[in-house]
């Protein structure tokens, strides 16, 4: 029985990833954060994606690192949603909100402008009070109390409105271009 070669494909793959990770990590983090919304989840899933990439055993062409990392990130995201909703259908990713696949192209310095555009389109298609509650609560991160004050309604109504707005927006997502 021969000893394993000291520099097998797994080690070569690790070298490729070790060299690439600082360049790719911010884009992978941003890609995930845009889809899970919270830093806590984005951090867990980003780490998970890199560990999974490092533990692979196939040889890896340096030119394909970025594509591989995004593929893994998408899989990790899909599993995340399946964990939360045992029979989650396609993650947001697969619908019209799907934001451009960065592929092998150069990363966009401002992230995926398409993502922001989709969100704006979606919000613009909602009734005014739905749009406003989502803007205040999610885009601006205001508290229920602040939102109620800003909209001139009772806090309890903010919660109801927020739920309805999210459900309506989720259903619109299917029909918007």
């Amino acid at each position: 029985m021969e000893a394993a070669p000291p520099d097998g494909p797994a080690v070569a793959r690790q070298r490729v990833l070790a060299a690439a990770y600082r360049v790719e990590a911010p884009a992978i983090y941003a890609f995930i954060a845009r889809r899970v919304g919270s830093a806590a989840d984005a951090e867990d899933l980003t780490a998970e994606a890199f560990l999974r990439a490092l533990r692979g055993r196939q040889p890896l062409d340096p030119e394909r690192v970025r594509g591989l990392l995004f593929t893994i990130a998408r899989a990790v995201l899909a599993e995340h949603w399946s964990r939360l909703y045992s029979e989650a259908p396609a993650p947001l990713d697969a619908g019209p909100l799907e934001l451009t696949d960065p592929g092998d192209g150069p990363p966009e310095p401002d992230g995926e402008p398409a993502a922001a555009q989709r969100v704006r389109t979606l919000l613009a298609a909602l009734p005014e009070n739905y749009r406003r509650v989502l803007e205040l609560r999610f885009l601006e991160g205001r508290s229920v109390r602040d939102t109620a004050k800003g909209m001139g309604i009772r806090p309890g109504n903010v919660r109801v409105l927020q739920l309805r707005a999210l459900r309506r927006a989720a259903s619109l997502r299917e029909v918007l271009p």
Partner: peptide
């Protein structure tokens, strides 16, 4: 899961979220 995913996508647009 879609309303939650949508909320996540909105929260992901907060300044500094990425």
């Amino acid at each position: 899961p879609r309303p939650h995913q949508l909320a996540a996508a909105l929260a992901g647009q907060r300044p500094g979220a990425t």
